[in-house]
């Protein structure tokens, strides 16, 4: 208990002192997770909408289980897959992305994408079918119908983005494997927490943990305010 209290005190000191090493890790986390979330949203939203707006998902018997399985992908397996693809012997080794932020972004996109596609698709399919009929009955074109239904499902779409954000900002397995946790280059909050805990630097680890939770809370608070509006 004493250790925890000491660590908390030290953590507060680091946080209020804007420790440069700490801020660097936070910056990298925001760049990697933000970039991955943006990419996954840009790909996942239209894909989820295209599938969710159809009366039947094409090859739904196959596609839906694949998407749902993807929603629970173990990050470490994604990391391993991306590692193999980007390693020197891998098919994409020429890109030279391994142990660099782009590799971490790719891994996090793979983790976030099924969540965004699956939850967007589900939220669109859960809209009362009468709404779709009503919108068409009022004279909507195909595109107007799609846009109206996406607007109607906006809470579900927002939930999809929140779930994806939560999934990738807190994962450690994939970014550790493909980023390598290199100081000043690929160290993010989760990998730094693992490292500092192993080193016995509990105060720093705790400070990083508080920051991670703060970031997650801040982002979710923002999403919540948006959904309220």
């Amino acid at each position: 208990m004493e250790t925890i209290l000491d660590a908390l005190q030290e953590a507060l000191g680091l946080l209020t002192g804007f420790d440069p090493a700490l801020m660097e890790v936070v910056g990298m986390t925001l760049r990697v997770t933000g970039g991955a979330l943006l990419l996954a949203t840009l790909i996942g939203l239209p894909l989820g909408a295209a599938l969710g707006l159809r009366d039947r998902v094409p090859a739904g018997g196959c596609v839906m289980p694949i998407i749902y399985t993807g929603m629970g992908l173990p990050p470490v397996v994604v990391g391993l897959f991306v590692y193999l693809m980007l390693s020197n012997q891998g098919p994409l080794g020429r890109l030279g992305w391994l142990f660099k932020p782009p590799a971490m972004i790719v891994a996090q996109v793979i983790i976030a994408l099924p969540l965004i596609v699956g939850l967007t698709l589900t939220s669109l399919r859960s809209i009362d079918p009468t709404v779709k009929l009503q919108v068409r009955s009022l004279g909507a074109t195909r595109a107007q119908t799609a846009w109206t239904l996406i607007r109607e499902a906006r809470l579900g779409v927002l939930a999809a983005i929140i779930a994806a954000f939560g999934g990738i900002i807190s994962e450690v397995g994939a970014v550790m494997l493909v980023g390598g946790n290199i100081e000043g280059q690929t160290r993010v909050l989760t990998t730094a927490i693992v490292l500092e805990t192993r080193r016995g630097n509990f105060a720093l680890a705790l400070a990083l943990g508080i920051l991670l939770m703060g970031l997650a809370f801040g982002a979710n608070y923002l999403f919540h305010r948006l959904s309220d509006e």
Partner: peptide, 24 residues
């Protein structure tokens, strides 16, 4: 145009719902 048994109103204001068909 059809009015269904369930009103199927959109998550907008009352005024925006009434004007929705015109907006389309």
């Amino acid at each position: 145009t059809t009015v269904f048994q369930r009103p199927a109103l959109l998550h907008r204001s009352v005024a925006a719902n009434i004007g929705y068909g015109q907006t389309l």
